[in-house]
Amino acid sequence: MITAYCSNCKSVEIRDLANPPEFPADVVWVDMVEPTREEELHVEKILGIEVPTRDDLRAIEPSARLYVENNAVYMTASLIWKAETEAPTLTDVAFILAGDKLVTIRYAHPKSFALFIAALHRIPEQWRSGAALLAKLLETIVDRTAEVLEMSISRLDILSVHVFGDRAKKVRKPSNYLEEKLKDIAGHHRMISKLRDSLGSLSRLLTFFYTIPVVQHDQETKELCRTISRDIQSLSEHASFVAGNITFLLDASLGLINIEQNAIIKIFSIASVVFLPPTLVASIYGMNFEFMPELHLTAGYPYSLGLMVISAVIPFFFFRWKGWL
Rank of each mutant, 00 (worst) to 15 (best):
V103W: 13
F113N: 00
R122K: 02
E86I: 09
D157N: 13
K169G: 11
V103M: 13
A135P: 06
A146T: 12
R106I: 02
V93D: 00
H162I: 02
I105E: 01
V171P: 09
A108Q: 10
S160Y: 03
D157Q: 13
I123A: 03
H121A: 08
P88T: 03
R155W: 08
A146V: 03
A108I: 01
L134A: 05
E150N: 13
T104Y: 09
V171S: 05
T104K: 05
H109D: 12
L156K: 08
L133W: 14
S160Q: 10
D143Q: 08
R128H: 03
K136Y: 13
G99C: 00
A135Q: 07
G130A: 08
E147D: 13
F116V: 07
D100W: 01
R155C: 05
S160N: 11
R128L: 04
L149N: 07
M151V: 06
E139H: 12
I117Q: 06
S112C: 12
E147I: 07
A135L: 10
T85V: 06
R122S: 14
V142Q: 11
K169C: 09
K111C: 06
L120Y: 10
L97D: 05
L115E: 08
R155G: 14
L120N: 12
A87D: 06
V148M: 06
L156P: 04
F95H: 14
A118P: 04
V103L: 13
G130Q: 01
A131M: 04
K169Q: 14
